[in-house]
Design a protein around this nucleic acid. Structure first.
Lengths: 211, 211
DNA sequence: GCGAAATATTGCGTGCACGCAACTTTTGTG
DNA sequence: CACAAAAGTTGCGTGCACGCAATATTTCGC
């Protein structure tokens, strides 16, 4: 059994994530040293940077969890006869519906800390490559470059939606306890991605092979 | 006259850019210290980071020059009666036509140095905000969020095109002197942005006010 | 089990990005 | 011109990201 190594790696990764998030919430995001996170997870500071390439990355990855994986899976599971734009829309929007209830305090912290915001928005980029693959899988005849552009466009749309939504947390005098307008995120994401639906639907070479 | 300050700042900025590019070409991009660039431009190392937030940024900004400015201006100068998608396409593509002849050696260096590649691709992001503004100016009735998404989509498309094009420099045994397939960049950019044209054209609420 | 190859962890050294608090230069006003 | 306010520059200190080589751990063939 060769799974021991990989199992330990996954455990260390999760230990680092949870430790980073916990310490950031306890002491404030600016008062957490990489050394503390590493120590709390039982590894050396150098090892921390073998798992995460920035101090913020561990914190936000504890929040975003496996959303990328779920989104891609959702796209692939849509029935093949629905237009690409609809499939993407119906796959992406629900992925951002369960977000606010996850942990309001953590999201408020991300929203109000510039470095964390940037890092949080960057996590969406991880969707680009698998999404491009999913688009190719769905529409066989589509150009690789086109699929890539559409995937990058969807990622950009989601990023814009998140920016728009996070801004609501800082602009109206962010009181502690005043969390983010909960239900609105999926709607913003939907509005953003909808702007690209015409391009997504136009990409599939032939949605209906006429009889 | 209050222009002395701003004039000096611009001069320092350009001095840093040219010094960074020259030193990178002379000694190789990995053998240039920030301290050397600052010294060559006659400022302190700390001041360097007041102008550029990374070592690579000065180098690539010496190459990209004012392309963002030109692109936005080109979008705004298209006649108002052409569809948005066409206007964007005809504005963006020429901006990437004069690129290869600028300096083949510098581009080869960027293409083959991962850190410089990343930084180079990041410069395109600077187009997003002004382009979104230009889209709003062109199509009065468009939603701000929609304009932002479309601008971000165009930026993403350009980034994908550049990635695709830069890859050609590394994959086929990049011999020194073998530069990048020159004419192909505008075509790749055109192909990439074309995938988004349906979305761009669908955004304008009413392209032709009839009667 | 045993030893070798593969892989992960660690310490070290270097350069970098940036907050902060002086200090210097430019600007605008009387 | 003088002087104060505004804006730019600099040095310092800190923490971080990462290449590199040494060390410890896991895996795999026998």
């Amino acid at each position: 059994m060769a799974g021991l190594r990989e199992h330990k790696k996954q455990a260390t990764r999760e230990a680092l994530q949870t430790a980073a998030l916990r310490l950031a919430l306890e002491h404030g995001p600016g008062n957490v040293r990489v050394e503390e996170i590493a120590q709390a997870a039982g590894v050396s500071p150098r090892t921390y940077n073998n798992y995460f390439s920035s101090r913020e990355q561990a914190i936000v990855s504890a929040i975003t969890a496996d959303r990328v994986t779920r989104t891609v899976a959702a796209v692939l599971h849509r029935p093949a006869d629905v237009p690409l734009g609809v499939a993407v829309l119906d796959a992406v929007v629900p992925a951002y519906s369960g977000d606010p209830e996850a942990s309001g305090a953590a999201l408020l912290m991300v929203a109000t800390t510039p470095a964390l915001r940037t890092s949080y928005l960057d996590t969406v980029t991880g969707l680009e490559e698998p999404l491009a693959g999913a688009i190719v899988d769905r529409c066989g005849g589509v150009e690789a470059l086109t699929a890539r552009v559409l995937a990058a466009g969807v990622v950009a749309a989601i990023r814009v939606a998140l920016e728009h939504w996070l801004r609501a947390a800082t602009v109206p005098a962010a009181l502690p306890g005043f969390v983010i307008p909960a239900g609105s995120l999926p709607e913003v994401v939907r509005a953003a991605v909808t702007a690209l639906v015409p391009a997504l639907n136009a990409a599939a070479p032939r949605p209906e092979p006429s009889g």
